[in-house]
Nucleic acid binder design. Structure first.
Lengths: 144, 144
DNA sequence: AAAATATCTTGACAAAGTCTAAAATAGGAC
DNA sequence: GTCCTATTTTAGACTTTGTCAAGATATTTT
C-alpha cells in the first residue's frame, strides 16, 4: 500500500500498523486507534471531535495523545490540516489537492475534486510566489 | 460618504461619527476608537490585536467592548470576518468580494482584487448551491 | 433632577490548544 | 525472565480566543 492510496482502504488493523511503521512511527494501540479513525472519515473533524470518536474504541486515551498523534500524522504527510472552520483546525485525510465546499446550515465540509474547478489569472499576481491555493465555497448542499 | 467607500477615507473623526450614526449606532468614544482603527488597517487583525491597538488611543477600553463593537460592525455590514488564520477569526474592512493571499513566512494576509482571478467550472457543481466563494492562496510575497 | 435606557467594565466561564512532569510501557541486552 | 533505557502516555496546569452576566457609568427622556 502506498501513501497515495490511504484513506479508502484502511479497514484492517494490519494496514494501519504497516502504514505507521512505514512512516517510522511506533504503532501503539492509541496511535492505531487515531489513524484508523482519521483515515476512515470524510467528515473533516477537529481534534476534539476525533478524541470523542476515538474514545469509543479506546476509552482511556488522553486528549494530549490524540493531539500529539494527529500532529505527528500531519508532520509525516498522512493527513493535513485545513483552516475552514471557525475556532478550530480540522484534519483532512485527503492529501491530494482539492477544493472545499462548506454547508453553512449544517457546518458539513465537502471535498471538491481538484479538476472540477479551474482558477485563471494566477500568473498575473506578480508580487506573490504561490505555493498552494484552493477555492473555498460556501452555501447549501442541495437535497437529493 | 457611502458605505461602499469606507476603509480609505476614514481619517477624520467626523467621518466615523457620521458612519456610526448612519448605521444607527451611538458614537461613543470607545466605538469611535474601534471603528477608526479597523477601517484604517489593511492588516486583517484579530479582535485581540484590535484591542491592543485601540488601547493605544483609548487605554481604558475593555476586551468585551472591542468584541461587542466589532461584532456590531459585522452585523451592520461595515466589516466582515474571514476564517483564514489558525485559531482566530480576523476582521476585514474590505466588504467587497475579493480573494486572499497568505504569506506563510510572516502570516501577513493580502487582498487580491476580485477581477484578478476567475474560477471556472462552478456550474458543474450540481449538488451545491453556492452563496459565496473565494480563492485562498498561500506562499511568499516577493521582495521588491 | 429623577427615572429609564443604553453602554461599558469586570470577572467568570468554556473551548481549543500547548506544555510539563510523572507514570506507564516497550525494546534491547544479558 | 530481569534489568535498564528510551519512548509513550497521561493528567493537569496553563494560554488564548471568545462569550456572557452583573454591576457600574453614561446618556436620554421626562
Amino acid at each position: 500500500m502506498t501513501k497515495s492510496k490511504i484513506g479508502l482502504y484502511l479497514n484492517k488493523v494490519n494496514d494501519s500498523v504497516t502504514l505507521l511503521r512505514e512512516c517510522g512511527i511506533q504503532p501503539t494501540p492509541q496511535r492505531i486507534a487515531v489513524i484508523e479513525f482519521i483515515l476512515n472519515t470524510r467528515s473533516h473533524p477537529s481534534a476534539d471531535q476525533a478524541l470523542e470518536q476515538v474514545r469509543l474504541q479506546c476509552p482511556t486515551i488522553s486528549r494530549a495523545t490524540v493531539y500529539n498523534t494527529l500532529n505527528l500524522l500531519v508532520k509525516k504527510g498522512l493527513v493535513r490540516t485545513q483552516i475552514i472552520r471557525e475556532g478550530t483546525v480540522v484534519f483532512d485525510c485527503n492529501i491530494n489537492q482539492h477544493h472545499h465546499f462548506i454547508d453553512e446550515e449544517t457546518g458539513n465540509i465537502y471535498d471538491i475534486p481538484w479538476d472540477q474547478l479551474e482558477v485563471k489569472g494566477k500568473d498575473r499576481l506578480k508580487d506573490f510566489e504561490i505555493v498552494e491555493f484552493q477555492v473555498i465555497l460556501r452555501g447549501r448542499r442541495k437535497k437529493k
